[in-house]
Nucleic acid binder design. Structure first.
Lengths: 203, 203
DNA sequence: CTAAATCTGTAGTGATCGATATGGAAAGAC
DNA sequence: GTCTTTCCATATCGATCACTACAGATTTAG
């Protein structure tokens, strides 16, 4: 049903997608309202009416990023038969996604707000929390692997999850620095080649 | 010998050290001239007279960071008897340095400029180049290990170096997100536990 | 002493930041 | 048609950005 009043003259979902790409490429502080409105094809009052403040738009863009870009690798992590295969599938999916032509390289959650000013500290903390949730998802998959017997029970799942996240976060930065898909895949294979040794109980 | 004219009223080296800490904590864009002059205890004209533009000051701050903070881990990498011990010593030194109380966490070269605007693209590229040099240093140590026989000759040194850098870059971000020294050290130990498997020739 | 050189503090430059006031345009309700 | 509601374009807001003009202060050179 049509709402009362003049209808919106642009596609809100498409505008959000374009805003996400600008934030993904330039980060929160690197994307000005002028950059965003140009990419979205609208003027500032339309942006503020449809999305609220810049910070609101950014949070919505991150949510869209996680739904569209972040979910497939996490699904691969969860749905693989073993924790090891899940981690490998997730890392391989990200090595591929981080170097997809025609769009920003690396992960938006990793790259969009490492610097901060007093006014953007909330944004920095928000992305840090999203990264902790990523590590927690790996941790949960490892715990499940231990419960199902494909990960040795003596393994420190927290340390192993933090290690996997470190590799993943580092891959994002290397992708942004120009690493190729082949190079990132080799990083994944190197990390996974060490898995049987790394995922072994230690003193 | 004293120069002609009124002498500088502040310690240039100490002012640079304070500027480095501000850039380290907040990044290039997150550190305003006002933030910098406040931390350095000087006024803008003194900053510009002594250091040039903000970008010049940043590059000098990075050089100082690399000399003071970055050199010890790299020396540990080079001076260890084997490549494996060198990498482990470097990573352990960084796990310690990234969580040193009373100063910014993580590595300045990794964290200070992941976002960018058209006017700061040069800064982003400059730090990317510094990161490539870090990876190249690891690569050189691995090549030497192969020449000296402590790294199997069939190992892909480039892939292994990129993997080590990924772990290291990821540790910086996790340190900034609040990871403790114990947690980062566990990441290093997990990575090194997999070394004998990872540093083995593969198809 | 005077002249030249260099540094410092005050006070501001134009540009850009995120965000908005205002008024006209375009829709449904009646 | 008129009234109400909502959206959009123009033009701009005050704040902050990196940076600097200017004048006074402090030094050496002579």
């Amino acid at each position: 049903m049509a709402e009362r009043g003049r209808p919106r003259g642009f596609d809100r979902a498409e505008a959000l997608r374009r805003a996400m790409e600008v934030f993904w490429e330039h980060g929160y502080e690197g994307a000005s309202i002028s950059d965003l409105t140009t990419a979205m094809g609208i003027r500032p009052p339309s942006l503020y009416a449809a999305f609220g403040a810049k910070e609101d738009l950014f949070r919505e863009a991150v949510a869209r990023y996680e739904d569209v870009e972040g979910e497939p690798p996490l699904r691969a992590l969860r749905e693989a038969p073993t924790a090891r295969e899940g981690v490998e599938a997730m890392l391989r999916a990200n090595a591929h996604a981080y170097t997809e032509p025609g769009r920003p390289t690396g992960c938006m959650v990793v790259l969009a707000a490492t610097t901060y000013t007093p006014s953007t500290e909330g944004i920095r903390d928000f992305l840090a929390e999203q990264r902790r949730l990523l590590t927690a998802a790996v941790r949960e998959r490892l715990d499940r692997g231990q419960a199902e017997g494909d990960v040795p029970s003596g393994v420190d799942a927290g340390a192993l999850a933090a290690y996997v996240s470190s590799v993943q976060f580092g891959m994002s930065l290397q992708a942004r620095d120009g690493a190729t898909r082949t190079e990132l895949t080799a990083v994944v294979e190197t990390a996974m080649a060490g898995w049987e040794c790394a995922a072994r109980p230690r003193a």
